[in-house]
Computed example of a mutant assay.
Amino acid sequence: MASGNPSTKVVTALQTPIITTSTVTRMSTTRVATPVVTIAVSTVPTSSTPIMSAITSGSTANVQHNANVAYIPSIPEWERSIQLDPTVAYHEHLLRRVKYTSWNGFEAPTSVVPYPELEVKNGLNVSVKDLRFRDPNFFLAGGIHTQKEAWFKILRSQDNERQVGHWIEHGVSVFDFIAPFKGEIFGTRYNCSFPPSIYLPNNPICRRHRDFVSSTLLDRVKSGALEIWGAVGKVPPPYIVMPLTIEPTKPRLCHDQRYINNWIKDMPFKLELITNLPSYLGSNHYQTKIDDKSGYDHVCLWISSRALMGIHCGGFWYVPTTLPFGWKCSPFIYKLLV
């Protein structure tokens, strides 16, 4: 299809588009599908440049754009019935502070516990009851970024010092993992170097778990793992909005990121196995195990990446602030950090 602006590439949207912009060029995009509506695609942004104008919002950046503020998706009745006010949860997040608990679940004192190495070296008379643990009920997302000096000390002279150090300093940029994609998604052919803007509705299975969906979203806003982008019809939506779905056996709220994952590089990694223990444990050593609370939520996304992973529910747009559970690169990044 031709565009009134000869310098702008025009593509066909899978569904009603959430953003239209004509500010950029150089995207070499082709899609073959039954035309529904059209959107113009912007220059592919990188982590070293400001986010492109199409994927900005007042909540994370003050950049001019041509997004349709009044865009309202077709919302099913069950979702409209959700009484969800995330602004209250956000105020709770602003007031939340990390609290500590003891091994038996009682609130722990604020005094600093000696390092285990010092305990052994100095022969201190301590007990497991003296240990403090962060209370998971007062979890705050992005914790590793509050300990930058310690991380930079750990990373000194490591092979991945520069890469991981950049993540600790700025957060993880999705743009660093974008790759061209040619293929079919949901019955539509794509051939482009950057994912076009799209809105995909939530999975109908969420209807049976609406209370769980709303409570989980509010909990994530309270912890800071989810950011309120704005109310539908009041602010432009995120550049890409992908479906919420439910893994019903736990249950677990999941963000279906299959759409954007098509444009994400393969980042293979290998998990350590229990059979590897003898190779690094000596005689009379012992092994202990810890489980990170919401592991991916310790690692922040670069602020301008967040609009690529939008969520809609209950009349509000959201974006994740931390590694999403469902993004193709999250396991690789987390494994590299731990």
Rank of each mutant, 00 (worst) to 15 (best):
W317T: 00
I303G: 00
R134V: 15
G142E: 05
P195W: 02
R31N: 13
V69Y: 07
A54N: 06
K182A: 13
I290A: 15
E92M: 09
N160K: 05
V36P: 01
V213S: 03
L140I: 15
E149A: 14
Y90V: 02
G233F: 10
K99S: 06
N137L: 12
R132E: 02
D256W: 03
V63K: 06
V112M: 09
R258I: 12
L217G: 03
R220D: 05
G295V: 10
T8E: 09
V112C: 11
V164L: 15
R96G: 05
I18E: 00
P243D: 05
A40M: 03
L273N: 08
V241G: 02
L118Q: 15
A40D: 10
K148T: 15
P76Y: 08
F332R: 08
I185C: 04
G165C: 07
I264L: 12
F325W: 00
S127F: 02
I311Y: 02
C254H: 08
T321M: 00
N68M: 08
T321Y: 00
K148Y: 03
T49W: 08
Q163T: 15
V213I: 07
E247I: 08
Q287R: 07
S193I: 14
L308V: 00
R208L: 11
L118P: 01
V126Q: 05
N68H: 07
C254S: 12
N203A: 13
K9I: 10
Y115Q: 09
S59V: 06
S22L: 13
K153N: 13
I246S: 00
F175S: 04
V235D: 02
F316W: 09
D297K: 03
I303N: 09
